[in-house]
C-alpha cells in the first residue's frame, strides 16, 4: 500500500478555505435570517468538517472501510438526535403545555 503524499499547497489551500468559512459564519450570524441562520451556520460547519475530514484526515485517500466508519459515526449520531427529536417535536400536538414555551 503506497502511501499518498499530499502536497503542501493543498494543505495551505484547505487552511485558507477554513479561515474564510470561519469569517463567513461569523458575518452571516450578524444578519437576521430567521431559521436560515441555523441552516447557514450548520451548512458552513458541515463544509468545514468535510474539508478537515477529506484533506487533513486523509479520508480522500483512505480505504472504503475508513470512510464507511466515519459515515456510520455521523449517521448514528443523526439517529440519536433525530429519534429523540421525533418525541419532542410531536409532544406539543397532544400536550401543548410541555413543548415550546
Amino acid at each position: 500500500m503506497a502511501e499518498h503524499v499530499t502536497s503542501r499547497k493543498v494543505y495551505f489551500l484547505v487552511f485558507a478555505a477554513l479561515l474564510a468559512l470561519t469569517l463567513a459564519t461569523v458575518l452571516v450570524a450578524e444578519v437576521d435570517l430567521g431559521v436560515f441562520n441555523d441552516v447557514a451556520a450548520l451548512t458552513i460547519a458541515v463544509t468545514k468538517a468535510l474539508l478537515v475530514l477529506l484533506f487533513f484526515m486523509h479520508v480522500r485517500h483512505s480505504t472504503r472501510m475508513t470512510a464507511l466508519t466515519a459515515v456510520a459515526g455521523f449517521f448514528w449520531l443523526a439517529l440519536l438526535i433525530g429519534l429523540t427529536m421525533a418525541d419532542y417535536a410531536s409532544r406539543g400536538q397532544i400536550l401543548p403545555y410541555v413543548a415550546g414555551k
Partner: peptide
C-alpha cells in the same frame, strides 16, 4: 436494536406519535 429505545418510555410522557413509531 438502535431504533427501538423509546419503548421504555411509553408511560413516561413520551409523545404518543413517537411511541407508536417506537
Amino acid at each position: 436494536g438502535f431504533l427501538v429505545w423509546g419503548h421504555h418510555m411509553f408511560v413516561a410522557g413520551e409523545s404518543i406519535y413517537a411511541a407508536t413509531i417506537f
